[in-house]
């Protein structure tokens, strides 16, 4: 992690720049600070033949101090400052990541409950996970009705479309209900053929009230990318998401049942309508056939038939 010397000298650390300018002015001849590509960052290039001292920080040469006596001490001082800046930046990065996590958990429930569609809820959970944990692929896989297969409900990159409970790293995670981090998939004897496409896998079960709903999986093409912190974060996200996914699934099922009931009711109404029509028709026919006029007609028809038969 290289701290660019320019930033150290000229931007957010004003006090450093001012102290350095004062030190340079006090020296005779003045000093000149160059970056790693030997571009001047501070001072004027002194006459040729002056000593050039490397500023070594974070295992690399980040620049040079050229000048007379005092230039070497200044190079050491800048290297020390740069080392300190690297540490501060690392701490700030860590704090920023923690802050992102706190922010994620703070806002997660609101985002997840914004929709009652299971796919949308799974997508939100996955999007939040990939925002914090760098991954090339990922998916939320839900357990099917017989409880044997895990099927992809939402994904990005190239996640596996399906997994079997107990098979592969993903299947094992679902079966044991324990989150897994595998930083070298090929070296893990449990890995399934489809999982060979990934270098590293992070997997957490989606469980609520002791019932397994599925798993959330993140994967990277590179190996050794996931930390224990990533695992904890994904597990927390999974445990927060699971009850909301369950609610969405229940809602979807209820909606489906209501639609089925509605369809059945429609069929029954249709059948009743047919029955009603038939009885209505029978009544109409009866109304006609039971009139004296119709009976008289029938009698006349019978008489005619009799006359024809007698004649033949």
């Amino acid at each position: 992690m290289a701290v660019r010397l320019k930033r150290l000298l000229t931007q957010n650390r004003r006090a450093v720049a001012e102290m350095l300018a004062e030190a340079s002015a006090a020296m005779d001849p003045g000093i000149c600070v160059l970056d790693s590509s030997e571009a001047v960052l501070l001072g004027d290039l002194p006459p040729t033949g002056m000593e050039k001292y490397a500023i070594e920080s974070g295992g690399e040469t980040i620049g040079w101090v050229v000048g007379g006596s005092g230039a070497q001490a200044l190079a050491h001082w800048l290297a020390y400052l740069s080392d300190q800046a690297i540490e501060i930046d690392a701490l700030a990065d860590e704090a920023l990541n923690r802050y992102r996590e706190v922010n994620l958990l703070y806002n997660l429930s609101g985002k997840l409950t914004a929709s009652l569609d299971p796919t949308s809820v799974c997508c939100v959970a996955l999007d939040e996970a990939r925002r914090l944990i760098q991954s090339s692929s990922g998916g939320v896989m839900l357990l099917d009705e017989p409880g044997v297969k895990l099927e992809l409900a939402a994904g990005f990159g190239s996640p596996p479309e399906q997994a079997t409970l107990g098979e592969g790293v993903i299947g094992a995670c679902a079966q044991t209900g324990k989150a897994e981090v595998v930083n070298m998939v090929e070296a893990d004897a449990r890995h399934a053929p489809l999982e060979r496409a990934f270098g590293a896998l992070l997997c957490a079960p989606l469980e609520t009230r002791g019932r397994l709903l599925g798993v959330i999986v993140l994967a990277s093409e590179s190996t050794d990318v996931y930390s224990a912190g990533d695992l904890k974060l994904l597990n927390t996200l999974a445990s927060q998401s699971a009850p909301i996914i369950e609610n969405a699934l229940i809602h979807e099922r209820m909606l489906q049942e209501a639609q089925e009931r509605e369809a059945r009711l429609e069929q029954q109404i249709q059948a009743l309508r047919i029955e009603l029509d038939e009885s209505h028709q029978a009544k109409k026919v009866a109304e006609i056939t039971e009139t004296d006029y119709f009976k008289n007609l029938m009698q006349q028809a019978d008489n005619l038939r009799q006359i024809i038969e007698d004649a033949s």
Partner: peptide
């Protein structure tokens, strides 16, 4: 101080663009 550091770190991309953070 940690929040100042945190905000500055979050804005580091802009610092790289030449924006001065005070």
């Amino acid at each position: 101080p940690h929040l100042r550091l945190l905000i500055a770190r979050a804005l580091q991309d802009l610092e790289d663009e030449g924006v001065e953070l005070l």
